[in-house]
């Protein structure tokens, strides 16, 4: 079994990934960009992917054409 743990607030996972602040978040809705975090309910979280890219545009290019996403750099 493989688990995914999400940390909230000031909690820090040992050897985990720390997300950048909400100011660094970009929301994507069917390719349309908006600054800030995903503003729907947390229960809609359905997937996590970690990838390396030179900049935001490269990440955006790899996203599917439809769907809702939030992109944040790792702090």
């Amino acid at each position: 079994m493989r688990f995914v743990v999400l940390a909230f607030g000031p909690a820090v996972l040992p050897a985990g990934i720390t997300l950048g602040s909400v100011d660094t978040a970009t929301s994507v809705q069917d390719r349309a960009l908006r600054d800030g975090t995903f503003d729907g309910p947390a229960s809609e979280l359905t997937g996590i992917q970690v990838l390396d890219a030179t900049d935001l545009d490269v990440v955006l290019d790899q996203l599917p054409a439809s769907g809702t996403f939030e992109v944040r750099p790792v702090a």
């Binding site: 950048g20 602040s21 100011d23 660094t24 978040a25 970009t26 600054d35 890219a53 030179t54 900049d55 935001l56 545009d57 990440v59 992109v71 944040r72 750099p73």
Partner: peptide, 21 residues
């Protein structure tokens, strides 16, 4: 201040976009 922070930290490229974009 917030916008500058965002410009610096959200991964926005400091680049001329690729031709197709």
């Amino acid at each position: 201040t917030r916008a500058k922070k965002r410009l610096a930290s959200s991964g926005i490229p400091f680049a001329t976009p690729a031709a197709e974009r």
